[in-house]
Structures are given as structure tokens and as C-alpha cells.
Amino acid sequence: MSLLQIENLSVNFNTDEGTICAVDNVKLSIDNGQVIGVIGESGSGKSVMALAIAGLLSPAAQMKADLFTLDGHDLNRMSDTDRQKMITDNISIIFQEPTSSLNPSLTIGYQLDETIRFHEGGNKSQRKERAYQLLDSVGIHDAKRRYKEYPHQLSGGLNQRVMIAIALACQPKLLIADEPTTALDVTVQSQILDLLLKLKEEHNMALMLITHDFSILSETTQKVHVMYAGQVVESGRTYNLLSQPYHPYTKALLESVPHFGMRYKKGRRLFNLPGSTPPMRNLPVGCYLGPRCPYANKQCVKAPELTGIKGRRVRCHFPLIEEEQS
């Protein structure tokens, strides 16, 4: 059964330069225990979408969704307080910068205790036991010592483990990990991903992994959504999408990074798209990729819809599937 189902989710911000649409009619569903990926370059709306789902948008943001159900409950028909409670009881989120997401002036223990008190309550010694247990479950085995320490005394990787422990305190059904390893060294990255996948199994949580690195997705996720300028431009099963992208943007993302382990001739040029991602206050007419797209033609001044093609959804007038038919 779908744990989370969202249709036409939009988030707007009023800025000095007019209204921008940071998330534009996104459709998304996650099953219990499923791992899905969201990939896109910076500014494509990944974090805003994550915050919207986790109920953490600033009051200035205008959010709307035609459908928003969580664990069978229709959040659109709940009061604000009920909706907020439903979300905080079931969805947790961790961020890219663990060290700055934690409060530098409070101990690890205090920050963990705050969350436990909020979700489970219990007396002081019960909460402490629970905190040790949570720290242990994220691979921090000297829990008693770390409990008394401050974030700056821990490495980035350890702080991310602490963030995960705090996120687990509510026993969430969905954990959103917003670029959880981007700021960490490669050798630490794989440890954190291993941990997230292990916890997912143990707690039967769903996991939404936001990243800009395809190599992470292929090993971890069943489904991927590719975002560009606030829109989902392609989504489908990870393996199919990575091995044969239909959207020119997905193809460009895949081909513009040299893959480690390949031998390249000296001086070989990398594939790339001209120009750069347009600012959200100044998007092109029609298809947002149009001016950068090698396949664009006259028809692309008309905005393409997200259309179902062979089990995939693609927002393009000219999806790259010709070769397969001949």
C-alpha cells in the first residue's frame, strides 16, 4: 500500500522579483519500506519539496497539493494541528550539513533527549536509556561518552549518525535524507549509506534519498525522480532510467560525469549542455530545458506535459526512444 501519495504539489515563494515556483506540480508516491531517489542539480527544488513533505516550510511559503495522503489519512482534510502531528509522528528528515543542523551550544545528549521527551516521554532515566539505545543503533558504541559531548567534538560522519539517531526517535515510517553524504569524505559516505539501508530494513521504514550523484542511486533505490527547475522531468524504475534515459536532461546528467574505472584518451571532451540552469524567477517559455537542449525544435516553445511512456513518466515532446522501435 502507498505510504505517501502526493499529486500536484506546488510550492511558491513571493520574492522581491515576483513569485517563484520552487516546486511545480510534483506527483510522487512511496510504498511502505520502499527506497526512492530524487536527483537534480542545485536549485532544482529538491530541498523545498522535502521540507514541504516534512511540514517544515517557512510560513512565507505557499504550498498546495491536490492530493496529500499519509498512511491512508487525507492530510488535506485535517486541521493544521492534526496534520502537523500526523507528519511529525511519521516523517523524519536529515540534512546535508549535520554539524550545522545540530545546535552547537547543546550537548548531543540534550538534543537527543529533547526529541525523545517530545515523542515518547518517560522519566529521566528511561529517556537516557533510550538515548543510549538510539546512539548504539546508529553505530555509536561509546554512547555514554558521546552523550556528554558537543557537536564540534565529533567528526562530520559522527554528527550525521547523531542526526539519524534523532530522526529515528519518533520511529518514523518515512525518513527523508536530503543529500546526507554530500558534505562527507568518500570513505565516510559509504558507511552512512550502509547505515541508512540497514536501519530501513530493521525498522521497515521507507526512505527518500535526495542526491545529485547517480552512482549512489543505482545501488540503493527502486525508483528515481529527476528534477529540473522545480519540475519532475523523468521518473521510473532506477535500472531502466539509468540504462536508457528518455529525457535529454537525464541523459546529459549521466553523460557529463566521467565514470571512475573507465580509461579515457587524453584530451577527450566531456559531454555537456550549453549554458546553465535558468534562475527560477526567469524561466524560459515552454520547455524549461529548451534553450539548452540539443534536440529542441519549434514545438518546444509549448510546455510539455509529464506523460506516461513504457512504465515511465517523461516531460518531453521528443523523448529519446526512437532506436528501440527500429
Binding site: E41, L270, S276
Partner: peptide
């Protein structure tokens, strides 16, 4: 830099 722009800069350096 974003990957699509990263590739442009690497090509320029080459």
C-alpha cells in the same frame, strides 16, 4: 558547480 556546468569548465581547461 553543477555537473552539466562542471563538464564545460573541464572541457575549457583541456
Amino acid at each position: 558547480l553543477d555537473v552539466s556546468v562542471q563538464a564545460q569548465i573541464i572541457n575549457l581547461l583541456i
